[in-house]
Structures are given as C-alpha cells and as structure tokens.
C-alpha cells in the first residue's frame, strides 16, 4: 500500500495519478446510478447500452482517421451512441413490453457489430482490447475534465429528481397518476445511466461495465435500508474497489480493469455468503 502511495507521488507516474483521480471522481455517479439500475432491475439495459457504446467508439475512430474529422474523439462517439441507445431502449421498454428482452439482446449485438465493422473500414491498427477491457494508460487530462463535467451533471440531475426517480422506479403506474410524466423520467434515468456507462468504459472497459455499475450497489443494498443510504454506501464501495484494484494491479503488473472487477466480485460473493450464513444462524 505504501509502495503504491509512493508510486502515486512519483512524477513519472502521471498516468497512475490520472487513473486514480478519474476512478475516484467517477465512483460518485457509479454509486448513484448503479443503485437506480440495481433497484429498478435494469442492469440488462445498462449492458446493452455499454455494448452500443462500442459502435460509437468505432464510428469515432472512423470519422477521425478516415474522414479526417480530427476533433471527433472516439469518446464523443461513445457519448452519442450511449444516448442514442438509451433512447431506443427506453422506447422499446416503454411501448413494446412483450418482446423487450429480445429487442434489447439484438441491440446489444448490433451495437457491438457496428463498432467492429467501423474498425474494419478504418485504416490503421487499433488496440481494441483497451476499449473492451479498459486501460488506464488511455486516460488523458481531457478525460479528467470530461469525467468531472459528467459527474456534476449526473449527480445534480439525479439528486434533483430523487423523489420522482424513486417513485417511478418503485411504482410507475402510481407515479403517472400523480401527474408525473413517467416516460420522461424513465428516459432521464436511462440517459443518465448511459452517460455513466461511458465514464465506466474508461476505467474497466465495455465488457465489464455492468459489473462495476451493479456490484457496489448490490453490496451496499445488503447493508442499507433506504435508497439514498444505498447510494452513499455504493459510492464508498466503488471508491474502495477502484483504489484497491489500481493498487493491486500496479503492484503485480496486472490489467487494472479485470483486477478491479475481480476484487468487487469477490467482495460481493463474500458479503452475500456471509449474509446468507448469518441469516441461517438467526433463523
């Protein structure tokens, strides 16, 4: 641990500091949105959104390298694709209740496929694994600002609409009867989730996004009673997972994304096993 702190202070390890800052900043929206995703049971939707993000990244690479729009960063493509996917998924889940899972599964794969095809037609070589599995070396100063900006947006909106989001997540029908535009609130929830997913892609990559979005909230829900308590705890767990994950991965020269997920997953397993055992003993 001390070694890791020294490494953080080392001026040569600027990338590590950036990863550390981004991980910490992003933990706040992860915890908040993760709680909504877990309690509303839409982690499957979040998974589909994250895979559609790959389509956006592919498009970004294509526009940047082939078309020559140098300002079009893959991350801009990622944000656009995430919002677009969120809107489509929201429409599907609001208006086509019966085949929801099928449509979302299809979108999941199509998003991924479009990304790969974009990469195919883009000249040059790209290390796709950094997008798929996360790579802290990718994080730049620009990303820190982007994360900070999205952070402010997600936190302020989700807090401002807290009561309404809570009501809509708990009972859509009743919320509609209280004059709340349920569709709009649900879309807001999905769009905020989409933005959060884009942030996550930076840290753990597309494939493992759902894990870091849901595990902290799932662990937190074992301890917390109310929604906001779950959120606060989830943020703490998320910070803990990213910090230990980064530390361990630095010390043992492992990939940071999978290390973070592994630590989160093992913690979750331990917590639910313990809760189960404790419950049995009491019962």
């Amino acid at each position: 641990m001390i070694e890791f702190l020294h490494a953080l202070m080392n001026p040569d390890n600027a990338f590590l500091r950036l990863a550390f800052i981004v991980g910490t900043l992003a933990s706040v929206p992860f915890g908040i949105m993760g709680t909504y995703v877990v309690t509303r049971r839409i982690s499957y939707l979040a998974g589909a959104i994250s895979h559609c993000v790959f389509g956006g990244i592919g498009m970004g690479l294509y526009l940047q390298n082939k078309v020559g729009l140098t300002w079009f960063d893959p991350m801009i493509g990622a944000v656009m694709a995430a919002i677009f996917a969120a809107l489509i998924i929201g429409m599907v889940s609001l208006y086509a209740k019966q085949r929801e899972d099928t449509v979302i599964g299809a979108l999941w794969a199509v998003g991924m496929a479009s990304g790969l095809l974009f990469v195919d037609i883009t000249p040059g070589y790209f290390d796709l694994s950094s997008y798929l599995f996360g790579d802290i070396l990718l994080i730049s100063h620009q990303d820190v600002w982007m994360v900070a900006g999205l952070n402010v947006l997600v936190v302020s909106l989700s807090l401002f609409f807290y009561n309404r989001l809570l009501a809509v997540c708990f009972d859509e029908e009743f919320s509609a009867l209280r004059g709340i535009s349920v569709g709009a609130v649900y879309m807001l929830l999905l769009c905020l989730t989409a933005l959060t997913v884009v942030l996550l892609v930076r840290v753990v990559g597309i494939v493992m996004v759902i894990a870091l979005l849901t595990i902290p909230a799932a662990v937190a829900s074992q301890f917390a009673k109310r929604l906001w308590q779950t959120m606060v705890l989830a943020v703490f767990f998320c910070v803990a997972f990213t910090w230990t994950g980064l530390g361990v991965s630095y010390n043992y020269s492992l990939s940071s994304g999978p290390t973070i997920i592994m630590i989160a997953g093992l913690t979750y397993l331990a917590v639910i096993s313990f809760a189960r055992l404790a419950g049995k003993r009491r019962g």
């Binding site: 809570l166 919320s175 209280r178 917390a224 109310r226 929604l227 308590q229």
Partner: peptide, 13 residues
C-alpha cells in the same frame, strides 16, 4: 429499499 414512510410520501408527489 424504501421505508413505509417513503412509500406513503409518494402520495404527496
């Protein structure tokens, strides 16, 4: 994860 109070308060939305 809601308390009884949270649920009833939804009636005041």
């Amino acid at each position: 994860p809601v308390t009884v109070m949270d649920v009833v308060l939804m009636g005041r939305l």
